[in-house]
Nucleic acid binder design. Structure first.
Lengths: 214, 214
DNA sequence: TTCAAGATCAATGTATACAGATTCACGAAG
DNA sequence: CTTCGTGAATCTGTATACATTGATCTTGAA
């Protein structure tokens, strides 16, 4: 694997996981020494982070981790609505129903689980639904836009703590989306997606800041 | 201005204007010498082109200008529908109506023009409508997605020749979009946008290949 | 005491040199 | 004649050295 790819992956993960906070300065020499690569591949990694919107370039002061606050969440979710609702419509028209029937069952089961490991399992399941929708849509332009969007969503998710109750409701909402796609009904899938996005945004805006950052 | 920015702008323009055809190999040393910059800033420019989707990186063979063919047009327009229809809705809710009333008049006037310079004037006007919608939406995430999309659209546009008749009809469609936004009616604006995209796609798919490349 | 101007320093932007990898071509063997 | 292997050439990937720009601190004057 190329050194620039490694540097990019490490920095991206650290930014998404809030180990690098918004406003943190990414000095080239400093990060290059820390990651054990030269400045050249690190600069390439920084350029990709800037292209992703995870960092912004200040001239003379280097790159800093981009800000993410409640003021931008409405904007982020507006893009999410545009992309995910249309994706759900397209997936409902082109999907292989059996995959989504299975996903629906697994979401319903996940909604009944309350053990400690259920949170990570739920996030994995949600990521799997995203992947299946991507595969069903099979549109490289939309896929790229969704990938870019999901990176920002992963950052924003840390703003609000997902409590078990929210996870259970969210599982039902995901099940409804899978059900709509499995039924090959574009408008039902779109409506279920819109409902889910609405509740997700409301939850984040209500519970923002409740998370104690370590 | 930085050398890497200049190299990026030049290469991007040449790709969009089909001076660099799909499949053309962008050798680093070759392009660096041609543009009068070193390999380091040129590599940064290539990385940005790859991030934009205008080039794809082959290992060992360098970067080649990405392919754009009729098979991808449906995918591209699916993304366009998702983004532009939602943008029109949001713009209709937040716009300053007077700007769009003016734009509507200018589109109606442009639709009556038939002189040789009308084509470029029309494209400039359409770009101005895009800018005004962007400003009304005032959503950096959507704006970035739209910018990325429009680069690809500019490439695709060269696949089909816009004849005067199509330009006149397109002007009326743009006027309808501006009218819907000026009336602050989201669904009218969305419908006008959908209609325009449908006709635009139909025109491209019907007239593709009719353009004699110089 | 405060503001401004200059100098110094540090960090970015660029160039070049070197190493590793991949591809293409040529030759030999089946 | 085709196919596989080897070798060379070229191109990418990385590192380092140098230049240039911007930021910060200090000093002097009002």
């Amino acid at each position: 694997m190329r050194a620039s790819d490694r540097a990019y992956e490490v920095l991206r993960t650290e930014i998404v996981e809030w180990r690098l906070r918004p406003g943190a300065v990414l000095g080239e020499v400093e990060q290059a020494e820390r990651l054990g690569v030269s400045r050249t591949p690190l600069r390439e990694a920084l350029a990709r982070l800037v292209a992703d919107g995870l960092a912004v370039q200040h001239r003379g002061r280097g790159a800093v981790v981009s800000d993410v606050s409640l003021e931008h969440i409405d904007d982020l979710f507006a893009l999410r609505r545009a992309l995910e609702i249309e994706s759900a419509r397209i997936a409902a028209r082109r999907s292989n129903p059996e995959d989504f029937v299975r996903l629906r069952s697994r979401f319903l089961e996940a909604g009944r689980r309350t053990d400690p490991g259920s949170r990570e399992a739920f996030y994995d399941l949600a990521a799997e639904l995203d992947s299946c929708i991507d595969a069903a849509v099979s549109n490289p332009y939309i896929s790229q836009a969704l990938r870019s969007l999901r990176v920002h969503l992963a950052r924003v998710r840390r703003l609000a703590q997902d409590d078990p109750e929210r996870l259970a409701v969210s599982a039902l909402e995901h099940a409804a989306i899978a059900e709509g796609i499995a039924a090959r009904n574009p408008e039902v899938a779109a409506a279920a997606t819109q409902l889910h996005l609405h509740h997700s945004l409301e939850h984040i805006k209500t519970h923002a800041g409740s998370r104690e950052d370590t």
